[in-house]
Every structure is written in C-alpha cells, then in structure tokens.
Amino acid sequence: MQQPLAQLVATAQQEALAVTSRAELEAFKARVVGPNGSLTAVMKGMATLSKEERPVVGKLINEAKRSVEELLAALLLKVEDAEIAAALGTPWDATLTGPDAPAGSLHPLTRTRERILASFRKLGFTVAEGPEIETEWHCFDALNTPADHPARDMQDTLYMPKAFRSADAPRKGEEALVLRTHTSSVQVRTMLSRRPPFRIVAPGRCFRRDAVDATHSANFHQVEGLWIDRNVTLADLRGVLDFFVKETFGPDAEIRLRPSFFPFTEPSFEMDLRSPNLGRLSNRWLEIMGCGLVDPKVLELCGLDSNEFSGLAFGLGLERIAMLVHGIDDIRHFYNNDLRFLRQFA
C-alpha cells in the first residue's frame, strides 16, 4: 500500500507544476481529491482491508492526504498571486516623477503673519480686524493726530472722493474716508466697543501714497498690538516685546527701546533689534517697530478713563520682518508673485 500512495503523491506534485490558473487548479483538485480522484479511490479501498491492516494503512493515507492538502494550499497562493499581478498590471517604479502638482504653499507674508500672531497668542493677545477704508477720525483724530498736526505730514495719505460712502466705515459729517495708513484704527474700534482689560493684535493691509521702490510699497501689511488694563507699564511693554523678538528671531536676539515720537503714544519708542542670525544684517541695531504707552488723550478720545486705565501699543511691518527673517532684499518680490520666489517658502 505504501508504494502506490507514495507514487500517487509524487504524481500529484509533478502535475501541480503545470497548474497556473484557477481553472487548472480546480481540475487538478478534482483529479486528486474529487469524488473520482486518485486519492479518493485509495481511501475508498480502505473498506476492503483487514482490521489489522487498517491502522497502518490509515496512517499512510492520512500522511498522503496532508501532503496533498499542503500542495493545494500552496497552489492556491500561487494562483492568487498570479491573479493579483494580472489585476495590478506593470510593477510600480517609485523613482519615476509623479505627474501631479506638488502641494501649494503659503505666501511668505502669510507665514510671517501667522508666526507673529502665534507668538502674541501665547501672551493672551487675540486677533482683531477692521475695514481697510477708514474714516479720518478713526485713522487720525482719535489717535491724537488732528488735521493741523505736523504728524500728519509723516505719511502721505490716499483719500476716497467726497461722494464715496462705505458700508463698513460710516462717516460722520464732512470727514473724509482714507485708505488706512496703519491698523491702529482697529485699536480705536476695539477701545470703543470693548471694556478693558483686553489684549489684541490687529494684522492687516495699510496704504501710503508712496512711489514703489525696493523698500516702499503702495500697500504693505502691519501687525499692531494693544493692551489696555489697569497699571500697564513700560516694563510690561519691554516684557511683551522681548518675548516677541525672542520667539521670532531666536533666544540670542536683543532689543533696545529708542525714544521717538508718535502722536498716539507717550512715551514713544522705536524698538531696535540686534541678532547674530540675520546674515549680513547681523549684530547691528535694526529698527523694527514703533511702540509706547497709549497716550492718555487717545484713551479719553476712545471713551476710556485715563485715570483708571493705561495701555501699551506697538506696530510692526510684516514685510520688514519677513525680509529680515528670510533675507529678502526687495519689498517688490512680495507683490510680483513670481513662483520662483513664492516656491522658496513652501
């Protein structure tokens, strides 16, 4: 009995080599273990054996059966692999350049803005916004810059015609509407609408009547900050700015407050920055932003009691910061939208 069984298994193994498809597998399976299969026939022959022979032969048959089952399982894997390969087609070449567009990118001014806002958020400043076309009162008068004040000469302003009416900044009487020269107007709107304490940062687009060159732009972006509370001090201003500068320019950056003048702050300062990590601008004082304590007159103009409240304010130019951080030498790059520039910030 042993001899025919071994023969049977060997034959099956030989025949299995030719099986390549599921149909062939099914046919092969029928030939061996189907109702009329070779192995089935042997198993049927068990009935004719004597009691003594049965255990011996039974063991041999079980061994043969196991061999055949293993063979069938292996064949199934082989056939499935072939089917999957056929379904998937040509193997993938991972080194071939993908035909799809790469992810886009944020504009460097957006990246810089978000980075700045994130650092002020850590100090509890939240973002406020306001209209780009503003009333003269919000842009100048409320900021202690009346019409005959020489501070109005500090910047040339773009005006809207007398007939222009804004849905977002209704004007009172004969006052003019202007393209805002700074986002300080948002500070005014905040003071008028909220009760202290509050800490806000106002990012946004501003306008000056400037000819465009490497450092001037008809519009530019600012981030202005305002903190109103009881007893806000110069030490607080220093603390906030020191934190911001170290967040943006690294722990080695240092600041200095240089006395200056703005109509809306008293005392007023230019904040200078010095950092060892700014390329060819390293290790020298660079003017970064204007700041100071909110002038009591501004608080009063915006309906706050200057005996009760005090505040600090600061304003910086996004373009200036982005230029320093990324080593950009011409402000016009931000507005030219040449992808060879934009893609560098992906």
Binding site: A101, G104, S105, H107, T110, E114, F207, S217, Y335, L342
Partner: peptide, 20 residues
C-alpha cells in the same frame, strides 16, 4: 488662516497683489 492652508493643501500657491 484656515482657507489658505486648505487651498495650499489642494496644490494652489498663495499670491499677494496690490489693492490699487
């Protein structure tokens, strides 16, 4: 902020043009 991230993720590159 979110819309810029969404569109950049969809393969678009952000631009910035003058208002005037």
């Amino acid at each position: 902020r979110e819309v810029a991230i969404r569109l950049a993720g969809a393969g678009f590159t952000e631009c910035c043009h003058y208002t005037l």
